[in-house]
């Protein structure tokens, strides 16, 4: 029962993007389409789960003083792994996400979870925490990606969803659109909370 809570808290209550405003850079940068959002969400979840597992396993051997550098090395290794694997097997997606795959290293969500959760809890709970947070992140960027893709291109996952007469609001898939959609969604979340 407790495990279930660790798992689901990341979806809404402690959603890393909307509630804690972490990992904003990839959230805004890669959400020009749902496809990119799914790819980014998957990559980040992979890194989050595996770095959580490893950090929780080795936490007792690491002196407190070098905790952060040690975490960074672990995270950077998993980022490099997913970078190489994506480059080899999904080259088109890898090209679209570009710079933002190596930048998962400095995504505050991952170091944040390592420091706040995996460094203090056992492996099983850390897996659920990582998985939940990763899914929460993925849900958030898919929502933003979907809104931007529908408004900005009239498409969803590359298929036309709006009638041909719809004139796409280009600004939604340009840089400013990312900020505007994000701001309005955060406002909406605040409104719901009250």
């Amino acid at each position: 029962m407790k495990l279930m809570k660790e798992f689901t808290k990341g979806f809404i209550k402690e959603n890393p993007v909307f509630v804690m405003a972490l990992g904003l850079c990839p959230t805004l940068a890669v959400t020009t389409s749902v496809e990119n959002a799914i790819g980014m969400g998957f990559a980040a979840t992979f890194v989050l789960v595996f770095s959580n597992i490893f950090i929780s396993l080795i936490k007792n051997f690491i002196p407190a003083k070098v905790r952060i550098p040690a975490y960074i090395v672990v995270i950077a290794s998993f980022v490099t792994i997913i970078d190489m694997v994506m480059h080899a097997f999904v080259p088109a997606l890898h090209k679209n996400l570009g710079l933002f795959i190596p930048l998962i290293v400095v995504n505050c969500i991952i170091l944040g979870r390592a420091e706040a959760f995996a460094g203090k809890n056992n492996v099983i709970r850390s897996i659920f925490d990582g998985l939940g947070m990763g899914i929460g992140f993925t849900i958030a960027i898919i929502v933003i990606g979907a809104i931007r893709e529908i408004l900005g291109a009239g498409q969803l996952l590359g298929f036309d969803v709006l009638p041909q007469t719809y004139k796409p609001v280009l600004v939604a898939i340009l840089a400013p659109g990312a900020f505007l959609v994000m701001g309005l969604l955060m406002g909406l979340m605040n409104l719901k909370k009250k």
Partner: peptide, 13 residues
């Protein structure tokens, strides 16, 4: 400790 972690990571990579 840092050395061990880095060496293991580099080996796997």
């Amino acid at each position: 400790v840092l050395l061990v972690i880095t060496v293991v990571a580099s080996g796997i990579l």
